[in-house]
Design a protein around this nucleic acid. Structure first.
Length: 423
RNA sequence: GGAGAGUUGCCAGAGUGGUUAAUGGAGCAGUUUGCUAAACUGUCGACGGGAAACUGUCGCGCGGGUUCGAAUCCCGCACUCUCCGCCA
């Protein structure tokens, strides 16, 4: 959620930046300013009315104490009028605040200056790539066929017990997945991130805090009986651990990592490009989250990008990094770098990580602040990234490491797996 | 699922209708100091007004109500804890 004060000071700049998302925000921002002014004026009126009423009440108290009942009764009548006025003003204030809130909820984050303008993924900017794309032997096949061939993932079984998009991992497939999770967590904790295990269901307030609600309500599974949501990413419970906190400046940065399953409804997307592990309703992910001082958040973002790079380098997977264009940028992000691994047998890139700086967009909703050296309370910056999303890394490994003899295991994972080939 | 108790600031904790949310602790800042510690002083938050000094309103789980006046009385809701039952 944007800060009204920022809109007041930098409206034109914001409009220009939001245009990169293909959004003409001039009217929305104008509405925000109008709603805000109405709210402030109403509050000024209300405050004045209440101040007078308070003064009278105190006087009445004193008059009664002194036994001057008549004088007290005269004042009582006056407060009656003030009370009616304040009631009406209070309603107006609530209405104005509500309206302001509603508009603010519909405005996405301001893209960072590095973000290119653009409408969709074709306008994303490749900033880096590494790792040779392997030349596969004759007869190489996509991962869903490999999964069947080596009996390591069963998609039909998942359909039987739940539905499409809920695969069952089996044998060495399950073990490889567990190995990846352990490996990712080890890499993250070695880099200084504190490991957490967090709830997989969250309440409504948490959904609002990180911005999944109210905009993307349909993306989350909702357990209506208890009014809880299945998490679409660990970002939600992890970031919300700090909701409402007022930190000291030297508490920053706070760095967390956690493994969770992620649940996404993603209704209405079927076809060849979502086959196999490409897109699922339930998948595993290891996430990293940082709460940063505003002056250091972009340095931290670069650090996160480097960290993910290192992991992919160790796994020896061919990958590239994209800076998302305005049109592809998520609602809450100011800037996002997507990591994509090349899926050789499918001849396409698969997104395996998304590293973003949200600046104050989330912390403004979360009321997550710190006290700076001047004693002022300031909103912190939040950042997060996947390190990494399991199914597509798995797909990348299966396809890129396939040989006529079987699927080789990346060297760094062998100690975690206890075997070096799936055959 | 059943019964009971509770919710006050960063934490602990007093406060059953009257001007100011007592007190203690933590953290932070300042003073003092060879350094550390100690001591002393200051410091709750939100939203407004003001160039600033300063200042107004609100906040005792949330929402209503009674009253000139509510942390305190009344109604509804949420959440937490304890015990019982069930249970990995």
């Amino acid at each position: 959620m944007l800060q009204v004060a920022e809109i007041r000071d930098h409206k034109e700049k914001m409009i220009a930046a939001l245009a990169k998302r293909g959004l003409d925000a001039s009217q929305m921002l104008e509405e925000v300013l109008q709603a805000d002014e109405l709210r402030r004026n109403t509050q000024a009126n209300l405050d004045e009315t209440l101040a007078q009423s308070n003064t009278f009440s105190k006087e009445i108290g004193i008059l009664f104490k002194n036994g001057e009942t008549q004088k007290a009764n005269i004042l009582k009548e006056k407060t009656g009028q003030l009370k009616e006025a304040s009631k009406a003003l209070n309603e107006q204030l609530n209405e104005a605040s509500e309206k302001l809130q509603q508009i603010l909820y519909t405005i996405p984050n301001i893209p960072h200056e590095l973000v290119p303008a653009g409408t969709d993924e074709n306008d994303n900017e490749e900033t880096f790539s590494e790792g040779a794309i392997p030349v596969l032997a004759e007869g190489s096949i996509p991962h869903w066929e490999l999964a069947k061939k080596y009996d390591i993932i069963d998609f039909e079984l998942g359909v039987k017990i739940t539905g499409a998009g809920f695969p069952v991992y089996k044998g060495k497939g399950a073990r490889l997945q567990r190995a990846l999770i352990a490996y990712f967590l080890d890499k993250n904790t070695a880099a200084g991130y504190t490991e957490y295990q967090v709830p997989h269901l969250v309440n409504e307030a948490s959904g609002f805090g990180t911005g999944q609600l109210p905009d993307k309500e349909g993306q989350m599974y909702h357990a209506t009986e208890d009014d809880l949501y299945l998490i679409p990413t660990a970002e939600v419970p992890v970031t919300n651990m700090f909701r409402g906190d007022l930190l000291n400046e030297n508490d920053l940065p706070i760095t967390c990592t956690g493994y969770t399953p992620c649940f996404r409804r993603e209704a209405g997307s079927y076809g060849a490009h979502v086959r196999g592990l490409n897109r699922l309703h339930q998948f595993d992910k290891v996430e990293i989250v940082r709460i940063e001082h505003p002056d250091k958040s972009y340095e931290a973002l670069d650090g996160m990008v480097d960290h993910v790079k290192n992991i992919l380098r160790e796994l020896k997977l061919p990958y590239r990094i994209l800076r998302l264009c305005g049109g592809d940028l998520g609602f809450t992000a100011s800037i996002t770098y997507d990591f994509e691994v090349f899926s050789t047998a499918q001849d396409r890139w698969l997104e395996i990580s998304s590293v973003s700086n949200f600046e104050t967009f989330q912390t403004n909703r979360l009321k997550l602040r710190f006290k700076d050296s001047d004693g002022k309370n300031r909103l912190a910056h939040t950042l997060n990234g996947s390190s990494l999303a399991l199914p597509r890394v798995l797909a990348g490994i299966l396809e890129n490491y396939q040989t006529p003899k079987g699927i080789k295991i990346p060297e760094v994972l062998v100690p975690y797996c206890g075997f070096d080939i799936i055959d």
